[in-house]
Amino acid sequence: MSAQTVATAFQRHFGYAAPLLVRAPGRVNLIGEHTDYNLGYVLPAAIDKEIYFAVGLNGGHEIRLVSHDLNDCCTVAVDQLHRTDTQWANYLLGVAAQLQQRGIVLTGFDCVFGGNVPVGAGLSSSAAVECGLAFALDQLLATHIDKMTLAHVAQKAEHEYAGVMCGLMDQFASLFGRDGHVVRLDCRSLDYEYFPFDTQACRIVLCNSGVKHSLADSEYNKRRQECEQGVRILQQHYPEVQSLRDATLAQLQAHQAEFDEVVYRRCRYIVEENTRVLQACEALQRQDLVGFGQFMHASHAGLRDDYQVSCPELDALEEAARGLPGVYGARMMGGGFGGCTINLVAPEQVEAFLEQVSAAFEARFGRRPDTYQTSIVGGVSQVVGEQVTAGIGQ
């Protein structure tokens, strides 16, 4: 898959050339899971698994969308934007609807998109789709929206059109990624800081459990509700606690008797995970990958035992990686209930790591997991060299 592939498909579908070409990366998150919607800290990076877009204004009154990978189409009138039964299209239509709600005069446009971000692997293919189109429309309509606002546009699209009450991390990472860096985002203040991460000195290896998950299912939104319930309990004693970001472990423990056991464990995980992100960044600054990896394993244990969003396949992958030569750390990544583990591995040990983890997984589940080695790249951008002036349709 390349930008040229979607450009060719665009001309074939719509009969005119010269679309704007855009790439939007998926993301990994080294540590800080489910903390974003609790206004805490996350540590993501954009990666070289990407969605490519060819987008052009068509001079009419329709939005015409083509999923190249699914070989499927969807058409909606600009003045009748609504959620459809075509789930993949809702991510794109939600972006268009958000722009309209912000007072932007939207004209008809055509879009072909496709890429190599594995769907359901926890690499945020949905955020890449949203952010890529938001960026493309901003360019074509010359609306000059800043990147943070585009991230919010994409996030609200997912809330209102895909039905997933996600935090801001995925969209932020896709737009704000920097080559060779991870970025710590404070999800309350939206301050962020880049930290160098050399993927040639330490490889990021993903192992896919093969279990497909949908963040739109009830469990994801239920976790958010449980966290909000915990905040309400704490606010009775500490009015300054507006989110779990503001809570301390001591505060939780002092009022444990007032909590439902499950809600308490959810809140404990979030409070501890926020602390782990800050400690992990300190380890990065010391170039202490062994220390960083210990925080990753602790994160997995919390996600497995307290937040309960793991699954047997993810647990088996993390367990198989733990203690192998050259493995600094491993944990499940993403919303949970499937997807990938993220592993930090010394370059000279990657081949042996992949063989040993795959063999252990196959012995238990009867199949070998898909694996990916990833590099850290920059955020959403126009494809230079293949881009030509946006065309007007017939």
Rank of each mutant, 00 (worst) to 15 (best):
A3E: 02
L21D: 02
N38M: 01
D72L: 00
A77D: 14
V78M: 05
D79L: 05
Y91L: 02
Y91W: 05
Y91R: 05
A96H: 05
Q98R: 09
Q100P: 01
G108C: 09
P118F: 14
A136Y: 09
A136R: 02
L141T: 07
A142S: 10
H144P: 00
H144L: 14
T149K: 06
Q155A: 01
G163M: 03
C166I: 04
M169A: 09
D179L: 12
G180T: 13
C187A: 10
R188I: 02
F197K: 00
C202Q: 12
G210N: 03
S218W: 06
V231N: 03
L234D: 01
Q236H: 11
Q236M: 03
Y238E: 02
D246A: 02
T248I: 14
Q251A: 07
A254P: 01
H255P: 04
Q256T: 12
F259T: 12
E261G: 04
E272S: 10
E273P: 04
A280K: 04
A280G: 13
A280T: 15
L303I: 08
V309I: 14
L324F: 02
G339K: 07
T341L: 06
F353A: 06
L354K: 13
A360F: 04
A363P: 01
F365W: 11
G366T: 13
T371Y: 09
